[in-house]
Design a binder for these strands. Structure first.
Lengths: 337, 337
DNA sequence: TTGAAAGCGTTACCAG
DNA sequence: CTGGTAACGCTTTCAA
């Protein structure tokens, strides 16, 4: 009898089943390449010993880790939760596991995490941040690891991408509000490193305003240094002071819209009526049973699924060149605009 | 020159630096055990070759994977996002990485994921679900892997636990509402597998009602089959029909409270006034700039940090026996009650 | 302070 | 269908 503190090895199973380790290995990874009777013996031994194959050894030998790394900015704010869930879904079906890291919007953190991640020799890397240090890019390219950037379609992608155009999204929402009859439209939302994409959406807004002949863009400045929800609440106040006649505001995130809607209520303003409010993302709390927020829906779960699919396809050699998937977006009209 | 498609190995670095692999290994993991000049040569070679040590090989040899597995029910609903963030924080400082798996509230899934996880020989496992199949428990115990269960203090923990008493939480909120002057208090929230802990909070509520002499508990039944937010919205309607004189309701999650508050607004009910609403969790949208929800705050981030700390401490041999950490909770009075 | 040899537990490859 | 042998890339252990 072996030391029960130690894990059973394939060697142990082989002995117990009276076969070689190769037969055990095959019985587990390619059962049909083994005689039925042998397979049974092996399975019995596996069960009796509580054997669980060591993936470190397997990976080392087969050069396949079945590991995917996802580096996200933050898990908070509901933004990437869906995406991570979609990714896990796809990976699980392929017997892969997910290594997760949070960069907290810091490029330095990202670079460190990338190094750490590459040490695991992952099958692929999923990146949500959009700006990477030159070193980070070099490391990734040098590693010849499939990379998928998500939540944006970069001009100069590292490898593959699954997302949508944030500029087009801002444009679309502005157009949508215009179609609903609003004319004095403003925008607000967090800026800075925490939401460079929000800025791109605001740029889309600004360009749409000009294209639609709606006058100068009304971009509420962001004080910074607070949560997106607070930014939304304060933004509404600032907006009413600066451009009191505004009839609709596009918040670059649902979190910001939540802050704005809440602040409007506190001030007794009707939404719409006194001011219409639209968000971005269609996070769970934005639904009809909750905030009932007019917003631009983005398929978070699908982006995760799709990113996983691309990674696996590339590993299987089914994709070779660069590859971009545009998942689009869709305005959803609800009660606030 | 080597095939540039292949990763540089420690062997390559050793050759390049004119030393043995052992010296490279030491230069990287224990720099002070190597002469300064040698170290420089090694670092130079590492940089030139873009060498990244292979952790599969390292783990296999050193029997330390620096991997921690967390199995959560779902990433959605903001519930575990903070906890996962806290866990990552602690692990990162210890040079560990996080493997994440979602069980989707299925015990079978959990069992599969546990097996998959054990194959990586993680340093520890963090579990958020509270019920495990007997097989799952057996596997974990047999693996002699440190386990931390979080978000509850189980009667019969597998190993360690970091959490709070959900029963006490329900009791506390009921008492808190009583202190605020409410007398006809009800509760509502999702039930079933998706929130067995919510049921425990409701039990705490019911026991507190009796203890405080507030009459029979008013537990709004849950239709099931919908999101927690919808459940909250529908629950409010059901509540007003069944017990119209109710003056306060304790929702077993902030998501439910969001649905209830939203539904109340739609119906023109004042909160409080017509009905006070309290939630549970203090998720981001519950803050003063957002819903401004009266709720019971639970330290999600800290639970993650603490769980990581326990795992690392046990691995370092600093903890031996069972170990429970009660992180408590705290009522937060805001605008809705 | 450095190095040689012997694994760690698995799978690839080739024979039988 | 089964088995032997040689890696995989690193760290442990022991000597020098």
């Amino acid at each position: 009898m072996r030391d029960p503190e130690r894990w059973a090895t394939m060697q142990d199973v082989a002995r117990e089943a009276g076969v070689s380790t190769m037969t055990v290995s095959r019985a587990l990874t390619a059962p049909d390449k083994v005689a039925a009777e042998t397979r049974e013996r092996v399975n019995g031994a596996v069960a009796r010993l509580g054997y669980v194959p060591d993936q470190s050894a397997g990976s080392l030998s087969s050069r396949n880790t079945r590991l995917v790394t996802a580096l996200i900015s933050t898990l908070g704010g509901s933004v990437f939760a869906e995406t991570a869930a979609g990714l896990m879904r796809t990976l699980r079906d392929a017997n892969c596991q997910l290594l997760l890291g949070a960069t907290d919007y810091s490029q330095e953190s990202e670079e460190e995490l990338i190094s750490a991640a590459l040490g695991r020799r992952p099958v692929g890397v999923v990146l949500t941040s959009e700006h990477h240090t030159p070193d980070a890019q070099r490391k990734l390219r040098r590693a010849h690891v499939p990379v998928v950037e998500i939540w944006e379609l970069p001009d100069d992608p590292i490898d593959m991408a699954v997302g949508f155009s944030n500029h087009a999204a801002g444009w679309r929402m502005t157009q949508f509000l215009h179609e609903l009859g609003y004319r004095r439209i403003a925008t607000m939302g967090q800026r800075g490193p925490a939401d460079a994409r929000g800025q791109r959406r605001q740029q889309g807004y600004a360009d749409a305003m000009r294209a639609l002949g709606l006058g100068a863009p009304r971009i509420v400045p962001d004080d910074g240094g607070c949560t997106p929800i607070e930014a939304g609440a304060r933004g509404l106040v600032a907006l009413r002071e600066r451009w009191p006649d505004t009839d609709a505001v596009f918040c670059t995130s649902d979190a910001g819209a939540l802050g704005a809607v809440s602040e409007a209520r506190r001030r007794g303003l009707a939404t719409p009526g006194d001011i219409a409010i639209a968000g971005f993302g269609d996070f769970d709390y934005a639904g009809p049973a909750g905030l009932d927020l007019t917003t631009l829906r983005v398929p978070g779960f699908r982006m995760g699924e799709e990113a996983g699919r691309l990674l696996l396809a590339r590993q299987a050699g089914e994709i070779s060149g660069p590859c971009m998937v545009n998942v689009g977006f869709e305005p959803v009209r609800r009660a606030t605009a």
